[in-house]
Amino acid sequence: MSEVMTAVLVLCIIGFVCALLLVIASKYMKVPVNENFPKVRDCLPGANCGSCGYAGCDGYAKALAEGDEEKTNLCVPGGDVAARKISEVLGTEFEDVVEKTAFVHCNGDCNSTHDKMDYQGIESCKAAKLLFGGVGSCICGCMGMGDCAKVCPEQAIWVQNGLAHVDPRACIGCGLCAKTCPQKIIELIPAVNKVRVRCSNTEPGAKTRKACSTGCIGCKKCEKECPVGAITVEGNLSRIDNTKCTVCGKCVEVCPTGALIIEHIVVPTAE
């Protein structure tokens, strides 16, 4: 037999032995995978955003399939559709998902606030916050360097005129921006048409006014005007009880600084 043939033969035999070994090993040492796992995983959108509280869609699907997690409605991006599908797979009761969208509790763009320093550092809210609590005049305000926009998986956030805006239609409610924001002014709010407070400043009215022309000064006009008692002013900041608000818009009309707005949201309905 020629030398070449020996080489080819030996290589083939080694390859064959390796393959055989692997086949036998995978047959006899198979770890049973929960059969529900791939089915549940297919129901999830695969955004890996972590809003369910697990490391990713795989983690949530695994917990559901193995019975560690009972709630099928934790996936915010998937919404009702995903929750219903998962409930079908697992044969459990379907629970409605409360769709939430991010909302920036600030109205202080470059026109209504001013900078207290000429910041030349890293373009990041987190870094700027370390210097005397931020660049802007308002210590609670949006710094407009877009940490939230950078982390948003759906590009639903953009910064315009020094203020972050959320597109509620594009927002999937994962909450990454709320976790990232060093000012903690982004909140996940149920995606319904309700009046919202575009301010987070709890300093006394005069101080707020000095920092920002459109902040909530705690004047209590809205509280008095509200026919259903949904508004309370606490710590110099108007707070709205979403369960009571009827979106009559009277508070928005009387607000002297324009801190209150009605957020119109088109809620995507489940098919």
Binding site: E3, T6, A7, V10, I14, C18, L21, L22, V31
Partner: peptide, 27 residues
Amino acid sequence: GLAYLSTIIFILVIAALVQFVEIVLKK
């Protein structure tokens, strides 16, 4: 007398070995 084939055979053996070890460890 196949010492000259070491590169290709080693690649094959290492790949199979790692796969095998993975299966064993998993179990």
